[in-house]
């Protein structure tokens, strides 16, 4: 049983690989996103999730498993998680997982967490608040519902004591302190300490053949094709386009005084002031 002196707290951190948002550029002629050559990185919020888990490892000796769903290249974020201090990495990769919406993603991640639980205890699942590409912030609560566990979102600090978790939730203009029994799912948006850097020697170890990294496919987690990927998705993206304004720009020229007179006249004309 977790919580007993001889069994450590077991934590799973969900980690997503995303395109580096600082490198996202638009094609000025077509107005579409340039995807080629954009480096893939660990989702910024998931670094916070790992830091939260690794702080529990420092203080309580928690065992930390990093879990990611993505193409085989996404193993990079798991190597990085190991280099930061995680004990084990599991990549969910399967052609059938491609094109998943959040329902299908949370189903797949939920099945993998169930498999982890068939292998040993699991007390806490930590997600980032939001992925920088999909931006939905839906996975955390959906995984919590899949497992039937309570959820605590927008966490900036967290403590575990026995079978309970104390969390500080950051809301607009407000911090809430809540108490939640384990097992639970939390989503984090900040950490008391900046996320630690990967250690070079651990990174070298994480890239070796013998590193504790596994790849699971649909069969491993008994995920039927009809519930994963595009097929299992309940939403469909029917169109993507670039946001653009349809405004006609009127330039107001002259000295600063002339410009401001002209502007105020326009604003008065539209009854804006």
């Amino acid at each position: 049983m977790p919580g007993q002196p001889d069994s450590p707290l077991c934590v799973a951190v969900l980690v997503k690989q995303v395109p580096d948002s600082a490198e996202i550029k638009m094609d000025p002629r077509t107005g579409t996103l340039i995807r080629e050559g954009v480096p893939a990185v660990m989702n910024p919020d998931d670094r916070l999730g790992l830091e939260t888990a690794l702080a529990l490892k420092d203080s309580l000796g928690a065992l930390v498993t990093a879990l990611s769903m993505g193409p085989i290249q996404a193993v990079d974020v798991l190597s990085e998680a190991l280099a930061m201090g995680a004990d084990r990495g599991v990549l969910l990769s399967d052609r059938n997982f491609a094109g998943a919406d959040t329902w299908a993603t949370s189903f797949t991640l939920g099945r993998a967490l169930e498999r982890l639980m068939s292998q040993g205890p699991l007390d806490l699942v930590i997600c980032g608040r939001q992925a920088s590409d999909g931006d939905t912030a839906q996975i955390g609560p959906q995984v919590a519902e899949h497992l039937g566990w309570p959820q605590v979102t927008y966490v900036e600090r967290l403590e575990v004591e026995g079978r309970e978790l104390r969390a500080w939730r950051r809301l607009p203009g407000l911090v809430q302190k809540v108490l939640c029994p384990l097992p639970a799912v939390v989503t984090v948006l900040a950490t008391p300490q900046a996320p630690r850097w990967p250690l070079v020697d651990r990174l070298l170890w994480a890239c070796r053949e013998a590193a504790p990294l596994e790849v699971w496919d649909a069969a491993d987690i008994e995920a039927p094709a009809a519930r994963t990927g595009l097929k299992g998705s309940l939403t469909r993206v029917v169109k993507t386009f670039s946001p653009k304004g349809q405004r006609v720009t009127q330039w107001l020229e002259g000295t600063a005084a002339e410009q401001s007179q002209a502007l105020l006249a326009e604003l008065r004309g539209h009854k804006l002031i």
Binding site: D101, W103, Q138
Partner: peptide, 22 residues
């Protein structure tokens, strides 16, 4: 809102509904 984005995904998963964010 923070509340809506906490509640809606939980509900969508319980009832197996699609959910579009934001």
């Amino acid at each position: 809102t923070p509340l809506g984005r906490d509640l809606a995904p939980r509900l969508s998963r319980r009832l197996d509904l699609g959910l579009t964010a934001d």
